[in-house]
């Protein structure tokens, strides 16, 4: 059965499948035009607005486990002053020594930058999206995931949300020169797992290291499976990517609201689009921020793209210090 299916794909037979489904849609649409006209709008809506349109009765999914909630809060990134304080300024003499060392030893700053950018800025971006603490208000993105999409509040769910955002970033990192992209991916994933280890021990109060290690191994297995499924979805079609999202983010919920799956798929595709339009240099310097789900990403015109490129070039032309040198492209 699998072989036949594979053969159909290899010969491009899935195109025929799409044609059949399209004709059925057209026939149904013609007969029920009044019903469907409202939803024929080709305009893209913001993911959170799209998801809120539906009021499907919520049937609680039995996850066969009672999630453990954090009983303590550790610092978002770390308690180190450089990482924790957004207004931290290194003293002038320290900066001068640093710049001298970089210049004298010709240090590859693109390689060094992977730590603070991927391992701190982008890690923070991934962690922030699904972060929740009991009795604390949710951020806009977290409320999209937990309130609009009705996902269960649990540590594993937070991980799945962070993993989805990791994958989105890693798609862009693969498009960087190999040695830099690989380094960025490694720094990001290492930091995510280090953070999970700390949170399981300090926030969830799991005292056994063996249990924590087993959880981390499980999460690693999930990472491999999810990345493969998302990659497959990226290279094939929307429904394959939607199925991957349904299995991983929606926990394979049989009573899932299709509107929610569509909203999340639109959210993921829009982030990838923004990353596609961003140059290696901008991305490598940590300029990317995930677009909040209550905003719509509109495709850029050629003129807008050229304008953005000009602005980026003008901005990076001012970066003349040894620590700001980069071989990453500003054109692609």
């Amino acid at each position: 059965m699998l072989g036949r299916n594979v053969a159909r794909y290899a010969s491009g037979g899935h195109r025929n499948v799409r044609a059949i489904s399209t004709s059925q849609i057209l026939a149904f649409g013609a007969r029920n035009s009044a019903i469907l006209n409202r939803f024929k709008n080709e305009e893209i809506e913001a993911p959170s607005k799209l998801a809120q349109e539906s009021s499907l009765p919520v049937i609680e999914q039995d996850l066969k486990t009672k999630p453990r909630h954090p009983s303590k809060k550790i610092p978002f990134l770390s308690d180190h002053k450089i990482e924790n304080d957004p207004n931290y300024q290194m003293s002038g003499w320290k900066q001068s020594i640093g710049q001298w060392v970089i210049k004298t030893f010709s240090i590859d700053m693109d390689k060094s930058r992977a730590g603070p950018v991927a391992g701190s800025i982008y890690f923070g971006e991934c962690k922030r999206q699904g972060l929740y603490y009991p009795n604390e208000p949710l951020s806009d993105t977290a409320s999209f995931f937990y309130e609009t999409l009705n996902l269960p509040k649990s540590f594993s769910q937070q991980y799945q949300i962070a993993l989805l955002h990791y994958w989105i970033l890693s798609v862009r990192m693969r498009a960087m020169p190999f040695k830099y992209g690989k380094n960025y991916q490694q720094k990001l994933i290492d930091r995510m797992f280090k953070d999970m280890e700390l949170r399981m021990s300090q926030e969830l109060k799991i005292s056994s290291n063996r249990i924590i290690e087993n959880y981390l191994k499980d999460y690693h297995t999930q990472l491999i499976g999810a990345v493969l499924s998302y990659d497959e979805g990226l290279m094939t079609d929307d429904i394959t990517l939607a199925s991957a999202l349904w299995r991983n983010v929606f926990n394979g919920n049989p009573n899932v609201d299709m509107r929610h799956v569509e909203a999340l798929l639109g959210y993921v595709r829009s982030q990838l689009y923004v990353l596609n339009k961003m140059s290696d240099r901008e991305f490598g310097f940590g300029k990317f921020k995930f677009v909040p789900p209550d905003q719509v990403v509109q495709p850029l015109t050629k003129a807008q793209e050229a304008d953005l490129k000009e602005k980026a070039k003008a901005e990076f032309a001012q970066h003349t210090l040894p620590s700001q040198t980069s071989s990453l492209s500003l054109d692609e």
């Binding site: 489904s21 849609i25 080709e42 009021s55 499907l56 509107r259 569509e262 595709r269 689009y273 495709p299």
Partner: peptide, 27 residues
Amino acid sequence: DLKLQYASLRDLVNDKYKNYYKLDDKL
């Protein structure tokens, strides 16, 4: 809600988002 389920599924099957947010060979 049932119509919305159908409309969403139809959009997913028709690759609405893949075509709207087109990616190029860069990614």
